[in-house]
């Protein structure tokens, strides 16, 4: 787990808390329709079709203002090595059409479109949240920070989380992000005191208190995790089935993410695959050195 915060062989930070990303779903709707948690992309699309048939939007998709994060985390779930392929595209060694995570991304949007929010490009996060809470939509792509939003709206809301199945790895890998990490500056005048503070924070009893307020997965050994809604995904993470979300690994990550979001919005509107790949290619070329 420590290698999440390694850079060029050096430990640059103590990774303290992790947020994770996946598919939040209404457990009650799933139970009513007898739906199983999908572990392959085909099974997920099948679940979407059944939800639509039962009168629900499968996904509430806020492509209006959340396309960037959804696209980037989907890529992270599909292929934790996308950054290698992006670099190869930038170096002229790989055709953009052969980037597996982008193929999977395009396939995903086109596959879920008929079963999801009709007006996804005009939908923002707040509207998607409203649709999820009001049982109009059964699933949402969201991070672990979403649990408190759901519980604020309705403390008894039947919510669960499962991982996004990857057609690239044929596995379920959870994209994680280090939300809190502690580093000590090399130029500090008080290195001993700083290290002592890090040591203090890494005590299980202190970390447990931190977890009680923060709610994210705490990386310190011995901290007890008690979010039943996320337990399945938590166990996957603890089994090592996770990868660092790709924005940390792409060059000029936020710019690349925003470019891919524009490509996704175009694809969703026009279903033009060639335009999608062209925008992704332009984005990589513009931002990679």
């Amino acid at each position: 787990m420590l290698d999440l915060a390694e850079y060029n062989g050096s430990q640059i930070s103590l990774p303290y808390t992790l947020s994770l990303y996946g598919i939040h779903y209404n457990t009650e709707i799933f139970d009513e329709l007898g739906l199983e948690i999908p572990t392959t992309m085909d099974a997920l699309i099948d679940v979407c079709a059944k939800l639509k048939e039962a009168g629900y939007d499968a996904f509430a998709l806020p492509l209006g203002n959340n396309a960037a994060q959804m696209a980037e985390r989907l890529i992270s779930a599909f292929d934790g090595n996308s950054y290698v392929e992006f670099q190869a595209v930038a170096d002229g060694e790989l055709d953009i059409h052969d980037v597996k995570s982008l193929q999977a991304l395009a396939d995903f949007w086109l596959a879920v479109k008929p079963y999801s929010t009709e007006d996804a490009l005009g939908m923002d996060n707040d509207s998607a949240h409203a649709d999820f809470i009001n049982r109009k939509a059964a699933m949402r792509l969201q991070g672990s920070w979403y649990l408190s939003t759901v519980k604020n709206a309705d403390p008894d809301f039947p919510v669960g989380l499962f991982g996004i199945p990857s057609p690239v790895t044929n596995d379920v890998i959870i994209p994680v992000n280090i939300d809190t990490g502690f580093s000590v500056s090399t130029s500090t005048a008080h290195p001993e005191e700083a290290m002592k503070f890090v040591e203090f924070l890494s005590r299980p009893e202190v970390a447990q208190k931190y977890y009680a307020v923060d709610g994210n997965i705490n990386m310190i050994k011995g901290v007890e995790y008690d979010k039943t809604e996320y337990m399945d995904v938590y166990n996957l993470v603890m089994d090592g089935k996770m990868s660092l979300t790709q924005i940390n690994l792409w060059q000029q990550g936020t710019n690349v993410r925003s470019g891919i979001a524009a490509a996704v919005q175009e694809l969703y509107a026009d279903e033009d695959l060639e335009a999608f790949y062209q925008t992704c290619y332009d984005t990589i070329i513009e931002n990679y050195e």
Binding site: D119, G122, D126
Partner: peptide, 29 residues
């Protein structure tokens, strides 16, 4: 207005049969 464009305008557009307004215009490039 984000909510008006998403929820109110399309409702009027659909009721009056105006295609252009039947979805959120902010979602159309």
């Amino acid at each position: 207005f984000s909510q008006i464009f998403y929820r109110v305008v399309p409702a009027f557009g659909q009721a009056l049969g105006i295609d252009l307004l039947s979805t959120n215009i902010l979602g159309d490039k």
